[in-house]
Design a binder for these strands. Structure first.
Lengths: 226, 226
DNA sequence: GATTAATTTGCGACATGGTACAAAAATCGA
DNA sequence: TCGATTTTTGTACCATGTCGCAAATTAATC
């Protein structure tokens, strides 16, 4: 029970009821919702990442979000739709962190180091256990049977491939890689390294070991650190 | 319904009832079982690989194995025990195929090609969809919450790492790799490549693309094919 | 007060994991 | 030959979970 139906009686004057981001929107009528969809979706995402789709019941979700089932249903649709929305949210968050590092100007090795450090932060976070990569976990489970989910997962996988590829291409142009380097192949190795640490993180391999894997992989990709 | 309770009235003489491997065993008393545990376990494994632990019900398992629930329970224990036994069976099968290739004498590049071809065969098989790598799928789902399962998964992951590492060490000794090559780092890349094709296979990436990934990775590991 | 929208309660039909128990089918001993 | 014994099978059952929905309730705006 996280956000429960306490009437927000704190500020007795009716001044937008503490909702943070309601700017120019057309003033919601009717009974105000007792939850914030954004934070509820975040809680749902946490649960799904922890337990997976099938092992997460609506009651679990209801307890975690503080919304009871019908409210959940009304706000997000059924369990599958909630899973999809959670996944989109994940992509927005995790993707944003990655994109920032891909965009910024820096040497190749440093960029890779920061990408993997960021990935490890995401995969190893979680109170009750490492939450792993939601894309990888979803690929392993729901993607086989659900075409819509599969397409989203594929989009995530190839998105990372492409980001890495263009990153290696730029590095090659700047002379950071030998002329013989194959940016596409390197990108797939880089993605594979992301996937392997995602998998291993879920098996509770400690961060030190994952960092060693990353270090070795970077060494193979851009040459051992002199 | 796969092996159903047809009394095996075919061979009317009571000559071991067609059960293949009952050699010198002390003659089972009581009503004979209507199933063969080996094939039932195989069917259970298929289902678990397809749907995962949580999404597979005892009724599903019962239907697939042709055993009804009490028989299932008596033969293998509860659902979790059955999952564990299925995983051990998978490791026996898939592991054997791999070990054979690792043992045999052949050039490094060929060995890698055969390893990955064998992996792809395993991951892409399945009537209803690619079954993927059971180790990877289990790592992503059950390994987080179940220490016993986690240990088995870790054993599988590190087993592959070690096999690759010793394979690269031998190759280096034989002069197939430059003196600067780092067998451990290469082994982790090789494992990562296995993991990435395992993940992607579940997202229904076509075999051609997976083979291209493998080819690129081999190129990075042992040098592009001249 | 009327309207609108979100909330809560609670239902109904069904699936789930697990078990109890009697009938069935084989071997063993006399 | 025939019953006793042993093991598996099949049916039925239980308590609990499960999803989705239809009322009824509450609170805000008009």
């Amino acid at each position: 029970m996280v956000q429960k139906s306490k009437p927000p009686a704190a500020a007795s004057e009716p001044e937008r009821r503490g909702e943070p981001e309601r700017r120019g929107e057309p003033k919601r009528r009717g009974r105000p919702r007792a939850y914030e969809p954004e934070v509820a979706l975040g809680k749902a995402l946490d649960l799904f990442r922890k337990q997976g789709f099938a092992a997460t019941s609506l009651d679990d979700l209801s307890a975690a979000t503080g919304m009871n089932r019908p409210s959940l249903y009304g706000a997000f649709g059924d369990k599958r739709e909630l899973y999809i929305k959670s996944y989109q949210r994940y992509r927005d968050e995790a993707g944003a962190a990655m994109v920032a590092i891909f965009r910024e100007e820096m040497p190749l090795r440093q960029r890779l180091e920061r990408i993997y450090a960021s990935a490890l932060d995401i995969y190893l976070s979680g109170d009750t256990g490492p939450r792993g990569c939601f894309t990888v976990v979803t690929a392993a489970s729901e993607a086989v049977g659900d075409p819509e989910i599969r397409d989203m997962v594929l989009d995530g996988l190839t998105g990372l491939d492409k980001a890495f590829a263009s990153c290696f291409r730029r590095a090659k142009e700047k002379g950071e890689l030998p002329e013989s380097a194959d940016p596409t192949a390197l990108a797939q190795i880089a993605s594979a390294t992301v996937h392997t640490i995602a998998i291993r993180s879920r098996a509770r391999v400690p961060r030190k070991e994952l960092e060693a894997i990353v270090k070795g992989a970077i060494g193979v990709m851009v040459g051992a650190k002199e």
